Simulated scan of single mutants.
Amino acid sequence: MTAITFSPPIGRRRALAALNVHLLAALIALVGIGGATRVMEAGLACPDWPLCYGSLLPGRQMNLQVFLEWFHRLDAFVVGVGLLVQASLSAWWRHELPRAVPWLSGAALLLVAVQGGLGALTVTLLLPFSVVTAHLITALLLVALLSACTQVLLEPSTSPMAPVQSRGAVYRLWPALIGVVALLALGQCLLGGLMATQWAAGRCLSSGEGCGWLLAHRLGARPVAVAVLLAAAWALWRRQSERVLAALAAFAVIAQVALGVLSLRLTLAVPAVTVAHQLTAAFLVAVLAAWLSRSLLEPAHLEVSRG
C-alpha cells in the first residue's frame, strides 16, 4: 500500500486552518462568556485592569461574578496570543498561502488590539454603554474575519468546473446578496447590543422605560430573519456547494428568533436563555461570513438550470 503524503505547503495550510478553527471556536465562546458577564452584572467584578484585584488569580475574592470576568479576560488573552501566532505564520508562509490570508490575519490582529483597548476602557470608564457596545461589535467582526479566513484556507486549491447551463442575474449578484444579508445581520446585532448595554429590555418590562430600543430590535429581527431564510432556501435549491452553510444559517436564525421570544416570555429571568441568544448571534455571524467567503471563492459551483 502506497503511503499518502502531503507537500509542505498543503501541510502548512491545513495546520493554519486547524489553528483558525480553534481560534474561531474560542472567539464564539468568548462572546458567550462576555454575554454571561453582562447578564450576571459582573463587568466590574474585577475593579482593576489587566490584573484582577492586583493578581493573576484572585483566590480570596473569587466568586461567580469574579470568575466570569477573570475567565473572560483569560480567554481574551489566549485568543490574542493565538491571533498573534496566526498572523506571524501567515506572514512567514505568505508565498504558500492564498493571497487573502495574510491580509485577513493582519486585520484580525489589528482588531484584537482594538478589542483589548476597548476591554480596558469598559473597566476604567465604568461600563459606558457606547464602549461596551463597541466591544461587542468588534468581537463579532473578529468572528466574521476568522470565519472568512478559515473558509479561504479550507478551500481546495483546484476544484472541478461544474457544467454551466445558466448564468442569470441571481448568479451574478449572489455574493453581493449574501453580503447584504450578512450586513443586515450584523446591523441587527449592533441594535441588540445597544439595547442590551442600556438594559432597555429589562427596564421596558419592569417600568415601561426604554421600550423604543426593544421595539426597534424586534422589528429589525423580522426582515433579517426573512432575508436569511430566503437566501438559504435559494441556496438549498440551486447552490449545491453552499447547502451546508445555508442550512446552518437557517437553523441559527430560527433558533435566534425563538430564543429572543423565549427570553422576553421569561422576562429575562433565566440568564442561560439570554446568553444563548447572544451566543447564537455570534454563531450566525460566523456562518454568514463563511457563506459569503464561499460564494466568492467558488465560482465553479454555478447555479444549474433545472429546466
Rank of each mutant, 00 (worst) to 15 (best):
residue 218 R to G: 09
residue 225 A to I: 00
residue 248 L to E: 02
residue 306 R to Q: 13
residue 286 A to D: 04
residue 181 V to D: 01
residue 220 G to P: 08
residue 200 A to I: 04
residue 96 E to W: 05
residue 115 Q to H: 12
residue 194 L to F: 14
residue 110 L to E: 03
residue 41 E to P: 00
residue 14 R to L: 15
residue 114 V to H: 00
residue 120 A to M: 15
residue 101 V to E: 07
residue 220 G to R: 08
residue 218 R to Y: 00
residue 245 L to P: 04
residue 64 L to E: 11
residue 289 A to M: 07
residue 11 G to M: 12
residue 28 I to R: 02
residue 123 V to I: 13
residue 73 R to L: 11
residue 251 F to G: 15
residue 276 A to M: 10
residue 75 D to F: 14
residue 188 Q to C: 02
residue 307 G to C: 00
residue 125 L to H: 09
residue 236 L to D: 03
residue 103 W to D: 03
residue 62 M to C: 03
residue 287 V to N: 04
residue 274 T to Q: 15
residue 36 A to V: 02
residue 100 A to E: 13
residue 94 R to K: 13
residue 168 G to Q: 06
residue 260 G to H: 05
residue 258 A to N: 07
residue 184 L to R: 01
residue 224 V to R: 00
residue 125 L to C: 00
residue 304 V to G: 00
residue 275 V to F: 10
residue 5 T to W: 04
residue 241 S to G: 07
residue 283 F to Q: 12
residue 59 G to E: 03
residue 98 P to Q: 06
residue 128 P to T: 01
residue 267 T to S: 14
residue 148 A to F: 02
residue 263 S to E: 14
residue 183 L to W: 01
residue 37 T to Y: 04
residue 92 W to G: 01
residue 173 L to T: 11
residue 63 N to F: 03
residue 242 E to Y: 01
residue 218 R to H: 08
residue 245 L to N: 07
residue 289 A to K: 05
residue 229 L to T: 06
residue 147 S to Y: 01
residue 79 V to N: 11
residue 101 V to C: 07
residue 8 P to H: 07
residue 289 A to G: 03
residue 156 P to C: 11
residue 270 V to W: 14
residue 56 L to N: 01
residue 116 G to M: 08
residue 176 A to W: 13
residue 76 A to C: 12
residue 203 R to A: 10
residue 136 L to D: 08
residue 63 N to Y: 07
residue 80 G to V: 12
residue 16 L to D: 03
residue 209 E to N: 11
residue 8 P to C: 11
residue 73 R to Q: 09
residue 148 A to K: 03
residue 235 A to V: 01
residue 141 L to C: 12
residue 124 T to M: 04
residue 54 G to Y: 05
residue 231 A to M: 14
residue 172 R to K: 12
residue 125 L to S: 05
residue 78 V to Q: 06
residue 188 Q to F: 02
residue 109 L to P: 02
residue 162 A to W: 05
residue 34 G to T: 09
residue 261 V to Q: 10
residue 86 Q to Y: 12
residue 210 G to L: 05
residue 156 P to D: 09
residue 183 L to I: 13
residue 163 P to F: 09
residue 137 I to N: 00
residue 225 A to N: 00
residue 32 G to S: 04
residue 107 A to Q: 00
residue 160 P to Y: 06
residue 72 H to M: 13
